[in-house]
Amino acid sequence: MNQTVEGRIPVLDVGPMLEGVPGAMDALAASIARSCRDTGFLVLANHGVPQALADGCFEAAARFFALPEEEKLALKVGMLNLGFLPTGAQVIRTSTVNHNTKPNLNESFYISRDYAADDPDIVAGKPFIGLNRWPPGLPGFREATMAYYTAMQALAQRMLPAFAVALGLAPDYFAEDFTDPSCTLRLIRYQPQPEAEDNRFGFAPHIDTNFITFLAQSALPGLEVRTREGTWLRPPAIPGTFVVNTAEMLGRYSNDRFAPTPHRVVNASNQMRYAIPFFFGPGNDAVITPVPSCVSETEPAKYAPLRYLDHRRKLNQTNFAHRQQAGETVA
């Protein structure tokens, strides 16, 4: 049975830490550590991101998904997963918590860093770097989504030291790996699913594969989090806050001390549900290795060093139909 468990997913006031109040970083880090050892989910209040930016991004998402199907398909994702992903194109085969056999019941639009066509990284054809695919007939769409993207990347960078301190590390421990972070804004529209269907979800049970994820509160419920005991619960739905969850790379850095928590989406309403998750990960060339504070003689490293670019490549080849149709080998 789905439920909200009071206090199990804490609401944390991050304002004092962001303002540099003495002692606030350590206090926040202690709360983050407690939550990451339990559900891996928390809610951030007083984060400094204007609500108007989130509202503008939600509105932009609704305008895009309302376009005729042929206009959206003209922007369909290619090898870099930028642009439109239609319903039926993603099955989460990498999930270790559920044998997912059916596509997610949603359509998405992916946005990353907005490069110019003559940017040296674009010209050089660097892996996983490409041009965003902007809809030509939606004035203000690019501006609204990129304003939100920019604000969320800034917030994520400001939160990074707190996660380092939560692991008993210096605040700047992760700075080098996140000098040029890999960030993705995913606009999602979930189709109504008022009647349960066996093993069919708006988003099937999974863990996120980046470092941490920020999710603005949606107008309709749908997100469900699985506790260590196997109960599914919903995070507190407080307008103006962000739900934040740990992801696979933080799990690897922490040697599973902060293991990512499985979650899913079920849109049981009779309306379209919108979500705008922001995924924050290390740079493509970062090598993820368990941190010193989480490794000892009694707790040896569980993971070999992993280059983030290799991790991203394997995930995309496994979970997305268009990558498999292109004839890529799934390692």
Rank of each mutant, 00 (worst) to 15 (best):
S293G: 12
A304P: 03
A89Y: 13
R226D: 00
G222Y: 13
M272F: 11
P86N: 02
A144W: 03
L250Q: 03
Y173K: 10
N270K: 07
T184M: 13
P22R: 12
R312V: 11
R37K: 15
V21L: 12
L75P: 01
D177M: 12
E297V: 15
P135Q: 09
T94Q: 08
N106E: 04
P68L: 12
G222H: 04
T87N: 10
T39M: 05
E328M: 06
V243D: 00
G251N: 03
E197Q: 14
D310V: 02
L44H: 05
H47A: 12
L220A: 00
A164V: 09
N255Q: 08
E71M: 09
L167G: 01
L42V: 11
P262M: 04
A268P: 01
T145L: 15
F41M: 05
K302H: 11
P171R: 08
D26L: 12
P139Y: 11
Y148S: 05
S293N: 11
G222K: 04
V330C: 14
S31P: 10
N316L: 08
E69H: 11
A30I: 05
V11P: 00
P260D: 09
G168Y: 11
V291I: 08
M152S: 06
F280E: 01
A52R: 15
V21H: 09
T150H: 12
P139M: 10
P300S: 03
T246R: 07
A175Y: 09
H99K: 14
M25F: 08
R264V: 04
G20R: 09
S95D: 05
M272S: 13
N81G: 07
D119A: 15
M25L: 15
P292W: 14
R8Y: 08
D198G: 13
G240L: 08
A62N: 07
G283R: 07
A166H: 06
A60R: 00
R8H: 12
V14K: 07
L187E: 02
S95Q: 02
E107R: 02
A304D: 09
S31I: 10
S269Q: 04
R226C: 06
W232T: 01
K314D: 03
V77W: 03
V287P: 02
R189W: 14
F201A: 03
E195N: 10
V77K: 03
L155T: 06
R142Q: 13
Q90M: 09
G281H: 04
N284S: 10
